[in-house]
Design a protein around this nucleic acid. Sequence first.
DNA 1: CGTCTTACTATACAACCGTTCAGTAAGGAG
DNA 2: CTCCTTACTGAACGGTTGTATAGTAAGACG
Lengths: 215, 215
Amino acid sequence: MRGTIPTLKGTAMPEPRFRRYSSEVRAAMLVDAGLACLARGGITAFTTDNICREAGASRGLITHHFGSIDGLLAAVYAAAYQPMLDSLAPEGETSPSLMQIIERVFGTYNFTRDSLNVWLALWGEIATNPALQAEHRRHYARYRATVARAIDDLARARGLSVDSQDLAISVIALIDGLWLEQGIDPELLSPTRSIDACRRMLEPIFGPLAGSLAP
Amino acid sequence: MRGTIPTLKGTAMPEPRFRRYSSEVRAAMLVDAGLACLARGGITAFTTDNICREAGASRGLITHHFGSIDGLLAAVYAAAYQPMLDSLAPEGETSPSLMQIIERVFGTYNFTRDSLNVWLALWGEIATNPALQAEHRRHYARYRATVARAIDDLARARGLSVDSQDLAISVIALIDGLWLEQGIDPELLSPTRSIDACRRMLEPIFGPLAGSLAP
DNA sequence: CGTCTTACTATACAACCGTTCAGTAAGGAG
DNA sequence: CTCCTTACTGAACGGTTGTATAGTAAGACG
């Protein structure tokens, strides 16, 4: 039937029931929908129905593109971590200073209500979900290396001798702990206060740290 | 029929199909079972079936004692937080020093694989579960007050002037961040290394901090 | 226009979700 | 012993979970 009726451009043509995308594009749509569900309702809202409804796709698509819902979750984890790390140390830029890292971590790009919820939900799932653990280790190693390098640079500039690998763990703990507290209770902190909190802990170790916001 | 047959003590007596407990005792059993499920499989394992099987009770009991599964979750949250706080500042004891708090937080009583998993699971749920938020605020206030008081005591003894309320947030962030990292990747840290990490961050602020482990 | 690939839909499935409720029986009171 | 309270069971409810699969059709290609 279709096509036999002469149509004016964009009027009587029966529009397709659905649109076909390339594997990569559709996968990205599902990942985005997964992030949205995580942000809205935590890990318990990360379900086939919710995600496919959010993505405007049918229930079978997750299995089709990711094998299983856990496969999608791993992809979502990567999609949350990767751009965060990229924003800390953009490609083609000299390696960031410690204060730059901190300001970027708590900057408007990373530090949003949605991403706070996403991280909280993901952290809770890693411990008991082996598929996520492997994904985590890879990204955490890069995170730690970036921070450790910034600590090394700073210590060298100040003529200090520190164990940058160990200290990186502590700095990340401080940062993630502030994220955690802020995620759990949005009233408690703000980006500025979080940055100040980091500075107060780090200046006694390294001496004055100039941030771009307080030069 | 029962009781008509003369029985020898503990032999032919048909044993009861189930045991009746007081509300309080049974509630505690369900809370314990809930904690076990949380530790084993995260928030997604916190289900009626799992919990009741773990507690050796029938499916109706959670509703009977807690109104709903969310009611039980709130009770579980309190049951995880309360004893932790109690262990930090035992009743009838003088308020703990900062290093005492840190050593107790990372002590064998609190810092177990199970409780790490439980906290990870609960943190992920608070942000999107209003029932838990209220429960959290109450306990967190006490946690923060305990830490702030220890900071005040320490600062006074060293003749320093610090904002103990603000600093308490940072210290808690550091502690919780280390819990988080340890919970996510058990290989990364140990109780001793976590305590050392805290000391390394705090001594530049307060000067030498003697712990009971390193006198 | 017809053909082909495959992204996609939609249904079906068994297992499980939290909750309701009518009935049962444990165990203290008298 | 009998009675009575109520902690408790267990089946049943409608809804949702993740996945398998058979069939459909979008859209590129010739």
